[in-house]
């Protein structure tokens, strides 16, 4: 039943069919979405009415392609801003968390580690509403007591960044911890013996070793932030991110311009995925 054992023809055949169907199931919706981005029709459906690039470059007045669609471009820009901020913050904090839990010892370490894992089992919607309510309460408190209005605390881009940061950092930390676990600490000791201080050791030795996982973690943080919907939904203000505007368009029906956006997203994210997986393979050490 495994590679090294004799298998009956029927067994291999049915297993192959199963895997083929599985991959068909995985890819069919994506491929159809991508193909329909080039259909010269006002609706994202068949029949095929001929090839067009209008859903990318169309200038109107009938067909507005994505590159001339102000609302969607604006939301892509917003998502990009959020994703860059979240990536930087969560990569830095995630790296620090990895060092804290792998290389330091302190009271209540297990409790804190447990808390750090908690975002993995808290639904994103709950994270969103609890941060919304907390920031609202803090905002009201500041206004009542000190008479200052803190704009950061009302729904908007900064709150979206904080909300996404709260759980993406856990994921980044886990990725880096996985690699730090395999780190040979005698390398650090050697550097100490040669007269390096802690900062130099971290900078020249440990971070060098961790680099692939930090880059991988950052790539995942960027994509997760760019695509996040559940947490963002409750924290977003007037500047909607791409998943939010896309959701409204999908729900209410729209032209194949969504397919064009989907096409670009699929191409970009699978490119990042392949690069990430390939470089991850090379440096598994």
């Amino acid at each position: 039943m495994i590679r090294s054992l004799q298998r009956s023809k029927a067994y291999s055949f049915s297993f192959n069919i199963f895997i083929f169907l599985y991959f068909l199931f995985l890819f069919a919706p994506l491929i159809v979405t991508m193909i329909l981005a080039f259909n010269d029709s006002m609706f994202p459906s068949l029949p095929w009415k001929g090839f067009t690039l209008d859903w990318f470059f169309g200038r109107g007045p009938e067909k507005y392609g994505i590159f001339h669609d102000a609302i969607n471009l604006r939301s892509i820009y917003n998502s990009f801003k959020v994703a860059v901020a979240v990536t930087i913050l969560s990569t830095v904090a995630g790296t620090m968390a990895a060092f804290l839990f792998e290389q330091e010892d302190f009271k209540f370490k297990n409790l804190l580690y447990f808390l750090m894992l908690a975002p993995m089992v808290i639904p994103g919607v709950i994270l969103g509403i609890s941060i919304l309510m907390f920031s609202n309460t803090v905002g009201l408190f500041l206004e009542d007591v000190f008479g200052i209005y803190v704009k950061l605390l009302s729904p908007g881009i900064p709150l979206v960044v904080l909300g996404q940061f709260s759980f993406i950092t856990t994921i980044v930390a886990l990725i880096i911890i996985a690699r730090l676990k395999k780190f040979d600490r005698t390398l650090e000791e050697a550097a100490y013996n040669l007269g390096a201080n802690r900062l130099e050791v971290i900078w020249f030795i440990t971070l060098k070793y961790l680099r692939p996982s930090i880059i991988g973690g950052a790539a995942i943080a960027f994509l997760m932030s760019f695509e996040n919907f559940n947490t963002t939904l409750f924290l977003v203000g007037p500047d909607a991110t791409l998943p939010i505007t896309l959701y409204l368009q999908v729900r209410d029906g729209s032209t194949p311009v969504i397919n064009a956006i989907a096409f670009l997203l699929i191409v970009v994210s699978s490119t990042i995925a392949v690069i990430n997986l390939y470089s991850g393979k090379k440096s598994t050490y």
Partner: peptide, 30 residues
């Protein structure tokens, strides 16, 4: 790699793909 790539695409896009396939005017019905 084939297994992983689709999951880097956002949930919304993947659900949208199924909507395009399955709805009344969708590809499968066609």
């Amino acid at each position: 790699i084939l297994l992983l790539v689709p999951f880097w695409v956002s949930e919304l896009i993947r659900v949208y793909g199924w909507i395009i396939l399955l709805r009344e005017s969708g590809a499968i019905n066609y």
